[in-house]
C-alpha cells in the first residue's frame, strides 16, 4: 500500500483513527444488515436489517463529513444534516412499514413473508 495514500487518508500508528476504519465498519454493518434483510423470515426481522443498513449509510456520511472538510468549509454541517434527514425518513418509513406489516398480518394471519406468496404465476 502507498504510505502517502494511507497517511493522507488518515492511517497512522500514532495518529487517531482515520477515515478508512469508519468506512470499513460501515461496510461491515451494511453487509450484516443485508444478510438480515435477505435471510429473515419474519417481516420485522427484515425491517431490523433495513435499520442496520440505514445506520451504516449515516455512518458513511458522517465519516466523509468529518474527514473530508477543508479549511474554508468550516461551517458546513453536511454530515449531521444528512444524518438528521435520514433519521426522519427512517422514521416515516418505519411507520409505513409497520402499517403494511399490520395489513399483512390481518390478511395472511402471520408475519412471515413466505406466506405472502400469492403474487406468483
Amino acid at each position: 500500500m502507498n504510505t502517502t495514500l494511507l497517511t493522507s487518508a488518515g492511517f497512522s500508528s500514532t495518529q487517531p483513527v482515520g477515515l478508512l476504519w469508519y468506512l470499513t465498519a460501515a461496510a461491515i454493518l451494511f453487509a450484516l444488515g443485508l444478510t438480515a434483510c435477505m435471510a429473515r423470515r419474519n417481516a420485522i426481522g427484515i425491517l431490523i436489517g433495513l435499520e442496520l443498513i440505514l445506520n451504516a449509510a449515516i455512518l458513511n456520511f458522517m465519516a466523509f463529513w468529518r474527514f473530508g472538510q477543508s479549511a474554508t468549509n468550516d461551517t458546513s454541517m453536511a454530515g449531521p444534516m444528512m444524518g438528521i434527514f435520514i433519521i426522519v425518513l427512517a422514521a416515516c418509513e418505519a411507520a409505513v412499514a409497520l402499517a403494511i406489516l399490520l395489513n399483512l398480518y390481518f390478511n395472511f394471519g402471520s408475519v412471515e413473508v413466505d406466506k405472502a406468496n400469492r403474487m406468483r404465476l
Partner: peptide, 20 residues
C-alpha cells in the same frame, strides 16, 4: 458485496483533507 466494498475503500484514493 463486502469484499467488493472493502477493496474499493482501501484502494480508491479518497480526496481527504487535513484533520480538523
Amino acid at each position: 458485496l463486502f469484499v467488493v466494498l472493502a477493496h474499493l475503500i482501501w484502494t480508491v484514493p479518497w480526496r481527504a483533507g487535513p484533520i480538523q
